[in-house]
Amino acid sequence: MRKKLLRRQSSGPVPRFASQPGFTLIELLVVIAIIAILIALLVPAVQKVRESAARMQCTNNLKQIGIGTHGYHDANKRLMPGYNYNATTDISEATWLYFLLPYVDQMQIFATANLSQNFGSLPNANSTLNGFLPAVYSCPSDSMVAKTCWNFYIKGSYVGNDGIGPMVSPAGGWTGPGVTTIGVFMMNTKITMTDITDGTSNTALASEIIKVTGATDDLRGVMYYPEGPLYQHNTGPNSTTPDNLRQDACMNVPEAPCIGTTYTAYNNRSLIMAARSRHSGGVNLALADGTVRFVSNTVALTTWQALATIRQADMPADF
């Protein structure tokens, strides 16, 4: 027994650490591989948290817009128009996002506007208004950088429910010829909450849009001109069907396809813009009662279109 032990001490395999300090190549590779696996697990998780934080901020902004709209309704006993235009009494073309400004704590920028000058004839007294992007009008999931169309018209991320298009701007306003289905924000509308007979929790108020920039200018998202801050419910959220835009203001990109149409000016509008976002799988939607919901791209078309209407007596199914 003793002999065996001695022999083992003298000529058996020597413990490695005693003779060679440090790690072998295999050990090092294994450690690196484990670290790599851990990082691979962690990085997408961090990205997801970032994304969900941005989405939460985006939802919050829409909630603010909903509350602000109710604030405006309380003060004025009616909702603001989608946009105003009358050849003799009001040539401003001021949009709902402009009228909302005081109710989302942006009184200073609101006060710079001059309603006797047209919002679509920049540069003029209303250029100051277009020089500032309030944080509440910008969704961090999309670009937070202030972007403009035609160098003057500033873009935001939120759009009002203009019903089912195409959007036209007849002399008679929202009751004029060519208007098919009435939404909450249309030309010269002055509707009240009680006009929404479908119920405020069954009617869309506002949603999101993607600001597009590229080689061609693009009007989608422009806040203070009628052709930007509204959307239509013809197709579901993030549809692959192209939007119908002004012929020289369409930048076709995969996430927001579009075609330029015969419409080339304020007096022959025929506009269709779908709700779009950079969130995965859907868009945020503020209802007229002020709640904000996330609506999936796969929402049934009839449900989505029932949400657009204010008095069709069509109840949207669960969504």
Binding site: T235, G236, S239, T240, T241, P242, N252, P257, I259, N297, T298, V299, A300, L301, T302, Q305
Partner: peptide, 10 residues
């Protein structure tokens, strides 16, 4: 039938 699954292109 107005269900989901609308798509389109250029």
């Amino acid at each position: 039938d107005g269900s989901s699954g609308e798509f389109g292109g250029i």
